[in-house]
Amino acid sequence: MTMKQPSITSLPVSPDEERRSRMRKYSIAMSVRMACIVLVFVVPGWWMWVFALGAIVLPYIAVVLANVSDNRAGRVDAPGPVPYRAIEPLPEDLPPMPDRPAGDDR
């Protein structure tokens, strides 16, 4: 029986590349949050509240985005199923199984 080798294109992203991608997403979101914090003190009116909301909500969004795994090509193909093989019946000339003593719960 031959096992199907996984294709190089079906292998998941390396852990280093995945970590770099998550750090990049988190850094971008935190940079936008810093801009929102600065703009809260610069922009008057209702825009101030929009930027304040962004500064409050963006840390949660940044963590969620950074922790979402990007598994577009991350599924590795498993080997094929094991072929079914019928169990052969026991021969008729086998000696009987010995009886177990009472209380033997193995």
Rank of each mutant, 00 (worst) to 15 (best):
M1D: 11
M1L: 13
T2F: 13
K4E: 13
S7Q: 12
S7C: 07
T9D: 03
L11Y: 11
P12H: 07
P12C: 09
S14M: 01
D16T: 14
E17D: 09
E18F: 00
R19M: 08
R20T: 01
R22C: 06
M23S: 10
Y26F: 15
Y26K: 11
S27H: 05
S27P: 00
I28C: 13
I28F: 08
I28H: 11
I28L: 15
A29T: 02
S31H: 05
S31K: 09
R33M: 09
M34Y: 02
C36M: 04
C36E: 01
C36S: 06
I37A: 14
V38G: 09
V38R: 12
V40D: 00
V42A: 12
V43N: 05
V43R: 06
V43T: 10
W46I: 15
W47L: 11
W49I: 06
W49Q: 01
V50T: 13
F51R: 00
G54T: 02
G54A: 03
G54P: 06
A55V: 10
L58K: 00
Y60V: 12
I61V: 11
V63G: 00
V64Q: 11
N67V: 01
V68A: 10
S69A: 12
N71Y: 12
N71W: 12
A73W: 09
A73M: 10
V76S: 14
P79W: 04
P81A: 08
P81C: 03
V82D: 08
P83R: 04
P83E: 05
P83T: 02
P83Y: 03
I87K: 14
L90H: 04
P91S: 07
P91K: 11
P91L: 08
P91V: 07
L94Q: 10
P96S: 03
M97V: 15
P98C: 03
P98D: 04
D99C: 00
D99A: 15
A102K: 06
G103S: 04
D104P: 08
D105T: 00
D105V: 03
D105M: 02
